[in-house]
Amino acid sequence: MTYFLRRLLYAVPIALGVTIICFSLIYLGPVEPLDAVAPDDASPEELARLKVEYGFDKPLPVQYLIWLGRAAGGDFGVSLFTRRPVIEELLPAISNTMMLAMSATGLAFSIAFALGILAAYNNGRILDRLFTGVAVVGVSIPNYWLSIVLIMIFAVELNMLPAMGMGPTGSRDWAWDVAHLRHMILPAIAISAIPVGIITRTTRACILEMLSQEFVSALHAKGISRARVLVHVVRNAAPTVLAATGIQFGHLLGGSILVETVFSWTGTGYLLNEAIFKRDLPILQATIAVLALFFVAINLVVDLVQTWLDPRIRRT
């Protein structure tokens, strides 16, 4: 319990640091923030008025605190493009990305965990080399390129699966049914390629390390079945594999900009891409901040689950 609280406290400065970086982003970019919000033909008087309205006249730390205070209450300002509150654009996008990332992580973990265990148990043999090869290919392929290849094969040539969108024509809300899930298959496969590679390699390395430990010999000496020995080995490898999976989930939440764009999956990546082209600074700021905070939260959850799985961590 004390470990839980301490770990929670560690997350606070990290989260604050993240928000500072996100806030500073608008001043690090090539666009003067005032130019982004003002119309092209704005008069000097109008510019001065806008400068005060957006708070650009105040010192930077004050601007940050004002922004942070509003953001904490869910107010990230108004989109420069749609004039709607940023939060209204952001929430559905987060939910869409979350669904896709969770499905892809689940898919990647199931495949990679099995491949990794099989590779480790066949260390050095054909199966191991094959799966290690799959892992290297998975990590190396750019996922937007994979997306296009998948579309060409399964949507264009075979006409089996839809190429874009989040549901059949006319459907406005997501539903967990076959018609909608068909739209998720290709993007989920495309973004799970890298996690499959990384989790396979982590699992393989971790299981191999466990198999060389004395306690595995001791388990065999007890005469328990091979399946039960595997349960022990997996339970020991689980914290490390889970940590790798959690980090991959974080990457998927924030890192599928191109894939979401290719498939017109209206998640945070799609939103970011749009915002970048339209120079919609409030949207950019808010999306990046929220995604980064998710990443911090995922790390926190992974750490706490690890503690639960490995009694030795509780002491340190």
Partner: peptide
């Protein structure tokens, strides 16, 4: 595996590494 642990059993040198830590 039926003989191991029942008819013939082993005590290891280092119980810290021979027992499953989790």
């Amino acid at each position: 595996s039926r003989v191991r642990g029942s008819t013939i059993a082993m005590i290891f040198q280092e119980p810290m590494t021979a027992l499953d830590p989790v």
